Amino acid sequence: MTDNAMSEAAMLISLRDITLPVEAAGGLGADIAATVGLAGVLALIIAGMLRLFSMRRRVAVPPLRGQFLAIREMPDDARRVALLHLLRQAQPEHYAAIKGALYQPEGGVDIATLEAEVARLV
């Protein structure tokens, strides 16, 4: 800076607006690339939000002992089904071995046997 005052003409010249070129560098291709890039980022954000909100929440499963005690108070038909579900949840390989017997005419696996198998797990 100088200690001398600027003349009025010099001050007016320095206050002129800055003029930008009509067409930016890169032209139409750069504009399209920027638009596609921003749209892609926006699509990723929306997809992430949709995935976050659509994910299934894990339901807390009560411990086997609590389930087994609750099953003991059920009627026989409901108890058989509940014991089979519990056995399938706890030991899928053992359930797969006995599931063929479930559809036999004599009723499949006995309730006492199922209770013994599930009690062994608890």
Rank of each mutant, 00 (worst) to 15 (best):
R16A: 15
G29K: 05
S7A: 06
A25H: 02
L102I: 13
A10M: 04
L50S: 08
I18R: 07
M1W: 12
R120P: 00
E93K: 10
A112Y: 03
P62Q: 07
A34P: 01
E115F: 12
F68P: 02
L114M: 11
P75I: 01
D77T: 03
M6T: 08
R57P: 03
R58E: 15
D3K: 09
G66D: 15
R72G: 13
S7Y: 00
A30H: 05
A78K: 09
R88Q: 15
L28C: 03
A5G: 00
S14K: 07
L102F: 02
R58Q: 14
G40K: 05
M1G: 15
L15M: 12
G66I: 03
V36M: 08
E23H: 07
I18P: 00
M6F: 10
M55E: 05
E73R: 06
L20I: 10
R88C: 09
V122R: 01
P92C: 05
M49A: 15
A60Y: 09
A10N: 05
I32V: 15
A30V: 09
A5H: 02
Q67T: 08
D17T: 07
G107I: 06
H85W: 06
L83W: 13
E23M: 15
E115Y: 04
G29C: 00
A97G: 06
R120L: 13
L20C: 02
H94F: 14
L121P: 00
A60W: 06
L50Q: 08
A70G: 08
G100T: 08
G29E: 06
L114G: 02
I71Q: 01
L87T: 11
L38Y: 14
T113F: 11
A70E: 11
G66W: 05
M11D: 01
L114V: 04
M11Y: 12
M74D: 01
A70W: 03
G37N: 06
L42V: 15
V118P: 11
G66S: 12
L28W: 06
Q104T: 11
A112G: 04
R80F: 05
A24V: 14
L87F: 14
E117G: 00
L44M: 14
R16N: 04
L12K: 15
A96D: 13
L102N: 03
S14A: 14
G37C: 01
L38D: 11
A34K: 09
Q67A: 09
E8P: 03
E106M: 10
V81S: 12
I45N: 00
H85L: 11
T2Q: 04
D31N: 03
A82E: 10
G37E: 08
E117D: 08
Q91A: 14
V22C: 01
A10V: 08
R80Y: 09
E106N: 06
L69S: 08
Q104L: 14
G27P: 11
E115N: 07
M49T: 07
S54M: 13
R58L: 10
R88W: 07
L50K: 02
A5V: 13
R58A: 15
T2H: 10
T2W: 04
P63V: 11
P63E: 10
S14F: 02
T19K: 11
F53M: 06
G107Y: 02
A39C: 13
L121W: 09
L64P: 13
D110G: 02
V61R: 03
A10P: 00
V59M: 05
I18E: 09
V61W: 08
A70D: 12
A96L: 10
D31R: 12
A70N: 05
